[in-house]
Design a protein around this nucleic acid. Structure first.
Length: 913
RNA sequence: GGGCGGAUAGCUCAGUUGGGAGAGCGCUGCCCUUACAAGGCAGAGGUCACAGGUUCGAUCCCUGUUCCGCCUACCA
């Protein structure tokens, strides 16, 4: 009988390519509503269509694939739904860069041709990450691949927009919003990254209007915005200034006078000078203060964050100043203003000052508060149900520590600015009648602005005429929606909503959402709000939040730092399974992952270990195999089955609580240190003896355990498990669709486990003795073993052949008191004695050191325990079982001690002789 | 400013009802023993950040301190 041969080392590359194609071709990942089993569905966090697989994706996707493969094997009706996100700003940037290289620009093409161009780009480059995902072995239903700009999803976006508008939850208005002067678009609050910088605090003396010699000194970090000041605020209870409230300031560099107002919210008595300038058009706090005091808003910066002559004119800035500053960016204007103030003798001082600046999360340009008409979602009515869903447990966030984070954010959530001034995305379904809005629609050059107050006609389809005046002259709102608007709908639009599809009925609510912390607010919170609003049900039951992947030093990976670990490179070098297993094993909750290549290499070695133990099994598999009931099998077989059962229980329980790290550790421990290190060594004598009476049963256990273990491991290491599984005896066509192992109590054997503990302890002692006496590993030795406890003494008797084999020698099993007289080294632990014959002239120094050390440790421990037992309070208050345990330990220690001491004495005699 | 998380072996991290401190990697020594040198065996290495408190007993529970990380915030 010929058995298949495996190469000596595992070569992942060809195996992975072959199986990732084959699995898809055979349709194993395809879901169908009429499949048997309870539905289990995950929608993938759609990566940017511009993206390529980075290690964060690798982690995120590996964990999802583990969950999905696990549930598929458990017989669930499993759907993992893949897709990509159109990533408005990012994608537009990519294509614009391409155009620039061709000497073209977005504006030169015009909107329609530009959008066409982006679609072209998507058709050629948009599948990069999808192909890489397949390489990672992701078992998504690829036939259901979705894109946020698909026709179906786009219809859903229109539906949602119109319904929210009808419900009064979407409105348009002029507000101060975050504006990226490079992307030339609005951003939502959470698209702004705050970064602490060292800035300066300028103290500027503002003269009073009715007494130019009296001044009020204000403190500001942005002196150039003073041109748009419309008031100065002091605290109404500030004895220094409160008499000034109601008076006026002559605003320097302008010809304006502005009022002094009292504002307890804006002003902090302790900070700066206690007087604050108010610039409602360029600062969020000032904007609100302006509302409270009915102040005008004067914008002195334009949409590119350049000093705007028109704005300055409106602000009555002195003509010479306007000429000096016109068209300058803030960075250049600030020193000029500073110089002007200094010349005017009104710059009191400049202090160093720590402050936070907001930057665009896409391009890192400093974001400006910018006054402009935008679309918003009134968020409070959506947030309340989303808070409830988490509070009452309909949604479980894992790890739980993020719950408060979520709730805190949701309770203070502000209206969501959803309009973006870009071209790539879902264009807002709103039209304006030119006739009715002639005063609100202004065209300057080729730039049309729809001012606040214009009346939009919101509709899924383009209206043919104005319902008010019947005019057919309509223009569409040029803005597109925030990308997160469509991804907030992802869990139900991907399943066919707004159509009531069978998929929607079967798989919604989805089971688990796996994501990184960074998009908890961007995405998760919004999906919950939208899911509850439009489906009336939570979008998923569990949210598992995993860590961030950092480099080995704990630094965030970034291209500019050059410390990125490229998952594709790593997969190429060490194998995909090794990478996946590494990421899973490091996914401990609440801790970031510091990824070093050595770790991946370590798990590459693990894969190789599995490969080789499979080779071993194949090598000895010829011959009959007999499946006896567990109780009738040999001790090693009973033991490994018991351990296997324990491992199945552990892995399953850990996966149920999303402890991928502990599940991975359990698998590693079992496979390497129990199956390979001990079980395989224990059964070698049987396998290597032709026609051994236990041969048939042992071969069966060997392969049964291996096969079960492969299934247990498959979600973590899909490729190698499939490859090996195919070569060993198995039923079925692929491990992908086999049943996940379940606990079987008949496999558990406490007796075999006890037997094993004694074996391990004994063999360990003999091997230690070997090293102490410098006996080479290959040399056969004679040794005695005995135990104080008669029950264990009997066990040793039964273990005799295993002891002899694993210790490479001849084992004499007798109670220590009956050992024949002779020169030997005796090692003792917990009542177990092992004696190695000392022959020839060996160096006994190492052995003596070891005995001395153990004696010292034993004494120390005895003293500690004695101390506790002599403590009356301990004896009276500690639970009885703890006390007896302590007493037992003291007894054992003193018996061990006596034997060790006699052994030491004997060695000394031998040395002296 | 507020909130959260972390501090355990040289490094990365486990440690779930408080009672003898663990793993992986690295390191040291001995071995090419026919599954595997990407390996085997043995071993060294830890006042569990610091200070108090609760308890018979604390790595674990409580309080405070220090250091690090993250999130969040309108000190101009």
């Amino acid at each position: 009988m010929s058995t298949p041969q495996l190469e000596k080392t595992y070569e992942p590359k060809s195996v992975e390519d072959r199986w990732s194609r084959e699995w898809i071709a055979r349709g194993y990942f395809r879901a169908a509503v009429d499949h048997a089993g309870q539905p289990y569905c995950i929608v993938i966090p759609p990566p940017n269509v511009t993206g390529s697989l980075h290690v964060g994706h690798a982690l995120n996707h590996s964990l999802q694939d583990i969950l999905i493969r696990w549930h598929r094997m458990q017989g669930h009706n499993t759907l993992w739904l893949p897709g990509t996100d159109h990533a408005g700003i990012a994608t537009q940037n990519v294509v614009e860069k391409q155009l620039m290289a061709e000497g073209l620009s977005r504006d030169s093409l015009g909107r329609e041709r530009f959008v066409e161009r982006v679609w072209q780009w998507k058709a050629t480059s948009g599948n990069t990450i999808i192909n890489q995902q397949k390489q990672l072995g992701e078992s998504c239903d690829w036939d259901r691949l979705r894109f946020t700009m698909d026709e179906g999803l786009s219809t859903a976006v229109l539906e949602v927009f119109v319904r929210l508008h009808e419900d009064g939850l979407i409105y348009r208005g002029e507000r101060l919003i975050n504006w990226c002067p490079r992307c030339l678009t609005a951003l939502s609050d959470i698209e702004v990254e705050h970064e602490e910088v060292r800035g300066k605090l300028y103290h500027v003396k503002y003269p009073l209007a009715d007494d130019p010699h009296a001044v009020l000194t204000v403190a500001t970090t942005r002196p150039e915005t003073m041109l748009g000041d419309t008031a100065v605020a002091v605290h109404p209870e500030d004895p220094r200034y409160r008499h000034l409230i109601g008076k006026k300031i002559r605003l320097p560099l302008t010809t304006r006078e502005i009022p002094i107002v009292g504002d307890p919210i804006l002003v902090d008595l302790e900070f700066g000078t206690g007087a604050v300038k108010i610039t409602p058009a360029h600062d969020f706090n000032d904007y609100e203060a302006g509302e409270r005091h009915n102040l005008p808003r004067i914008a002195v910066l334009d949409h590119a964050a350049l000093l705007d002559p028109a704005g300055m004119q409106k602000g009555a800035v002195e003509t010479s100043v306007i000429d000096m500053l016109r068209g300058l960016p803030v960075s250049k204007a600030r020193p000029k203003v500073e110089a002007l103030l200094r010349e005017g003798g009104i710059l009191e001082k400049i202090d160093d000052h720590k402050m936070a600046v907001g930057k665009c999360y896409r391009c890192k340009t400093v974001v400006e508060p910018y006054l402009s008409p935008q679309w918003f979602i009134k968020i409070q009515p959506l947030a309340v149900p989303a808070i409830n869903a988490v509070e009452d447990g309909r949604i479980r966030i894992v790890p739980e520590s993020w719950v408060n984070n979520y709730l805190g954010w949701m309770r203070e959530i502000k209206d969501w600015c959803i309009s973006r001034q870009i071209w790539w995305g879902h264009q807002i379904p709103a039209w304006y009648c030119l006739a009715c809005n002639d005063r609100q629609i202004v065209t300057v050059g080729d730039r049309t602005t729809i001012l606040q107050g214009a009346k939009p006609i919101v509709s899924k389809l383009a209206p043919s005429q104005c319902p008010a005046c019947g005019s057919r002259q309509l223009i569409r709102d040029p803005d597109v929606l925030d990308t997160w608007f469509s991804s907030a709908l992802w869990p139900f639009t991907t399943l066919g909503w707004p159509n009531q599809t069978p998929e929607l009925k079967t798989y919604y609510p989805t089971s688990t959402l796996v994501t990184g912390l960074d998009i908890l607010f961007f995405w998760v919170a919004r999906m919950i709000m939208m899911g509850l609003k439009f489906m009336g049900e939570v979008p998923f039951k569990d949210v598992y939040i995993h860590a961030l992947v950092r480099d080995a030093e704990g630094q965030k990976m970034s291209k500019s730092k050059g410390n990125v670990i490229d998952p594709l490179h790593v997969m190429d070098q060490f194998g995909t399974d090794a990478l996946r297993f590494t990421l899973a094993s490091m996914a401990s909750p609440g801790r970031d992952i510091k990824l070093a290549e050595e770790r991946i290499e370590g798990y590459r070695n693990f894969a190789n270990k599995i490969w080789n133990v499979a080779r071993f099994a194949l090598m000895y598999l010829s011959g009959p195999r007999a499946p006896l009931p567990p109780a009738q099998r040999t001790f090693p077989d009973q033991w490994i089955l018991s351990r296997l059962n324990y491992t199945i229980r552990t892995v399953t329980a850990e996966l149920e609580s999303y402890r991928f790290d502990r599940a991975a550790t359990a698998l590693y421990q079992f496979i390497w240190h129990e199956y390979c290190d001990w079980y395989v060594e224990l059964i070698k004598p049987v396998l290597q003896t032709p026609d051994h009476p236990d041969g048939a049963s042992t071969r069966h256990t060997l392969v049964e355990t291996l096969e079960t273990t492969l299934r247990l491991l498959h979600p973590f290491m899909p490729f190698i498990t499939e490859e090996i599984w195919q070569t060993i005896p198995h039923q079925g066509e692929s491990i992908v669709v086999q049943q996940y192992p379940t606990v079987d109590q008949t496999r558990t054997s406490p007796d075999a486990e006890e037997q094993y503990s004694l074996l391990e302890q004994t063999v360990g002692l003999v091997r230690t003795g070997r090293v102490l006496l410098n006996y080479p590993p290959g040399q056969q030795i004679l040794f005695h073993v005995g135990h104080d406890d008669p029950h264990r003494q009997q066990r040793l008797q039964r273990l005799q052949p295993h002891l002899a084999h694993l210790s490479r020698g001849t084992a004499e099993v007798h109670p220590a008191t009956e050992w024949p007289v002779g020169q030997r080294l005796r090692l003792v632990t917990e009542g177990l004695s092992v004696g190695l014959t000392v022959s020839g002239d060996v160096d006994l120094k190492k052995a003596l050191d070891r005995l001395a050390k153990q004696l010292a440790e034993s004494d120390k421990e005895s003293q500690r325990l004695d101390g506790k037992l002599k403590n009356a309070e301990f004896v009276s208050k500690a639970p009885p079982e703890v006390i007896t345990e302590h007493q037992e330990r003291v007894r054992t220690l003193s018996r061990d001690r006596a034997l060790l001491a006699s052994s030491e004495a004997q060695l000394r005699t031998m040395l002296g002789a």
